[in-house]
Computed example of a mutant assay.
Amino acid sequence: MRILLVEDDAMIGEAISQALKDACYAVDWVRDGQSALSTVHRQRYDAMLLDLGLPHKDGLEVLRVLRAKKHSMPILIVSARDAVEDRIQGLDSGADDYILKPFEMAELLARIRVTVRRNAGIAAPTLSNGMLSLDPASREVTVDGVATLLSAREFSLLQALLIRPGAILSRVELEDRIYGWNEEVESNAVEFLIHSLRKKLGSSTIKNVRGVGWLVSKGE
Rank of each mutant, 00 (worst) to 15 (best):
G13I: 03
D22V: 05
D144W: 04
D144N: 09
N119I: 07
G130T: 06
I99C: 06
E14M: 10
I194T: 02
L174P: 02
L109K: 06
A160N: 08
D96R: 09
I75H: 06
V141Y: 03
N129D: 07
D96G: 11
V30T: 00
S17I: 05
S170H: 02
H56F: 10
E220P: 14
I16S: 00
C24F: 13
K199L: 14
E61W: 00
D9R: 09
E220K: 10
A189R: 14
D92K: 15
S79N: 00
S35E: 14
H71G: 09
S187F: 07
R64Y: 08
V185M: 08
I75Q: 03
N188P: 12
E191V: 13
R177Y: 12
P136Y: 06
G59F: 05
G59I: 02
Y98A: 06
L66M: 13
S138Q: 05
K70R: 12
W29G: 05
I194D: 01
N119P: 08
Q43C: 14
A152Q: 05
E7Y: 03
R87V: 05
I163R: 11
S217A: 14
K57M: 12
D51K: 03
L157E: 02
S170C: 02
Q43Y: 15
F192V: 15
D32C: 07
K200Y: 04
L215S: 06
A120H: 10
L158F: 00
V216F: 01
I206S: 01
G13H: 00
L37R: 08
L52V: 11
Y45N: 07
D176H: 11
L134K: 00
G53P: 10
D86M: 06
R113T: 09
E186T: 15
A36W: 02
E104P: 06
Y45T: 03
E220F: 13
A152C: 14
H195A: 13
S156G: 00
I194S: 04
W181K: 15
A80M: 06
L49G: 04
T148F: 07
R2E: 04
Y45E: 07
F103W: 12
K21N: 05
M1I: 09
K207P: 09
V116C: 06
G211C: 04
M73V: 15
V212H: 06
A137K: 07
G13D: 02
Q89I: 08
V141W: 07
R44F: 15
V209E: 08
R2G: 05
S138R: 05
R31Y: 01
D92I: 11
V141C: 13
Y45G: 07
L169Q: 04
K207Q: 13
S93C: 07
N129K: 06
R2L: 04
V40T: 13
A147F: 03
V143Q: 07
A106S: 14
R111N: 03
L215K: 09
L132E: 02
D144H: 12
G180T: 03
M48R: 04
M73S: 13
D86F: 05
Q43L: 15
A123C: 11
R111W: 04
A95R: 05
Q18S: 11
G121F: 03
V146T: 10
D9L: 10
